[in-house]
Design a binder for these strands. Structure first.
Lengths: 223, 223
DNA sequence: CCGCGAAGATTGCGGCAGCATTACGGGGAG
DNA sequence: CTCCCCGTAATGCTGCCGCAATCTTCGCGG
């Protein structure tokens, strides 16, 4: 589990990071809202712990900002500003919970767990083709809910085809999906991958077929 | 919106019902757990407000009972038993929030809104794989109900894998689950953890296997 | 209907990247 | 002081994947 801690009191932050790490929680720490926003763009956190009084502004303003950017990571506000009406304020701008300082780490942990009892991610993009379920984000493929592990390059080809199933994918598009600009190919490596992928899909009974459109590219279709 | 209020103080219940009705909320009220359970079977509530001290028992016992019956309606505990450790207790049996009496109706409303914003929590608290039972929130592992204690980093790896059992977990995801951005690794530390974890799982007869998908990541599967 | 050329399919081979394992030592907790 | 976690690095190995040779398929023109 990985948290983002936005807090300007260094000692508290250090102590909290230490205490959380004993619970197996990895913590990234920053004092600034601007940094925090950047960090949320680069990493995926399970939850965010947010102080209100921060050097570059009121912490609460961070919440609508984040939500507007499409991030719905649970947020727990940790603050000395703990009047009932301040709690209302915090919860109503979108915080998931609100905990006044000082607090017991045990209670923070319990509130974290309560907030995290929810489905992992709302934005899991999945594609079904034939008997297969493809998750291009996690590069995972299952056939009838039994996992199918493919070599990386074949996975990339399959994912690229699946994203445009029933439509032709240009040969050049496939190459771009599998190779970055540093790795250049001078052979029919892509064809080889297609071939091996076909065989593996057949063996697994995936219920799909990779068709070739001569001179153009390939196409993934159910059988 | 329709709530179920489980509370034995008549005046408080009446006052609360009145106050909530001003916000357009319909409230069903009962003093007894037995009745409450029956009501949840007959009606569908948006949330449940639960007192702890009730004529026919401790209110908290209601929560696992309800969850076991497959009902995941959000629950807010309202009680005078408001010590931090009591709050932990309440949240850890599955309450979504915990509010000490006395409270402002405005705060209750705000917490209600916060709880209702969260996606419905269908998430299982525990994960079973092979002979293991894993609680990723408390980071505890048991094999055939005897506890298995693993070093922290290995636990984190295992929990991350368990949360996506039978699906691939990207190498980068595992790294993010174990290390924060300050601690960078320049070696195969993760591989070492995997290796040691495998051995420990084998010794414990856990009945699971950690598979590698070359160039992609890892995957936890029953043997 | 036939023949020819180009694109694609398939497969064995070899190099090497990525993984598994393990020993070692520093460092932190009790 | 002692234990053990954990990062590091050395070693060996597996199998992915680029390459190329060979065979097959497709489309077009005569």
């Amino acid at each position: 589990m990985r948290l983002l801690l936005i807090e300007d009191e260094r000692e508290l932050a250090a102590a909290l990071s230490g205490a959380l790490s004993k619970h197996g929680i990895v913590t990234d720490h920053t004092m600034y809202l601007a940094d925090a926003f950047e960090l949320t763009r680069q990493n995926s956190y399970d939850a965010i712990l947010l102080d209100r009084r921060l050097p570059d502004g009121e912490g609460l303003t961070f919440i609508p900002m984040l939500r507007r950017a499409g991030t719905y990571t649970p947020i727990i506000v940790l603050t000395a500003r703990n009047e009932p009406l301040e709690r209302v304020e915090g919860l109503d701008v979108g915080a998931d919970d609100y905990l006044g300082k000082p607090f017991l780490v045990d209670e923070l942990m319990a509130r974290l767990r309560a907030v995290l009892r929810r489905p992992p991610s709302l934005t899991e993009l999945k594609i079904t083709v034939g008997r297969m379920l493809i998750d291009p984000l996690h590069l995972s493929v299952t056939v009838e809910s039994t996992p199918l592990d493919l070599p990386r390059r074949e996975l990339l080809v399959l994912a690229a085809l699946a994203k445009r199933k029933d439509k032709t994918v240009l040969r050049s598009t496939l190459e771009a999906a599998v190779y970055n600009y540093e790795e250049e190919i001078q052979s029919n490596a892509l064809d080889a991958h297609i071939s091996r992928l076909r065989k593996r899909l057949l063996d697994a009974g995936a219920g799909v077929a990779v068709h070739n459109i001569r001179g153009v590219g390939y196409l993934l279709k159910e059988e």
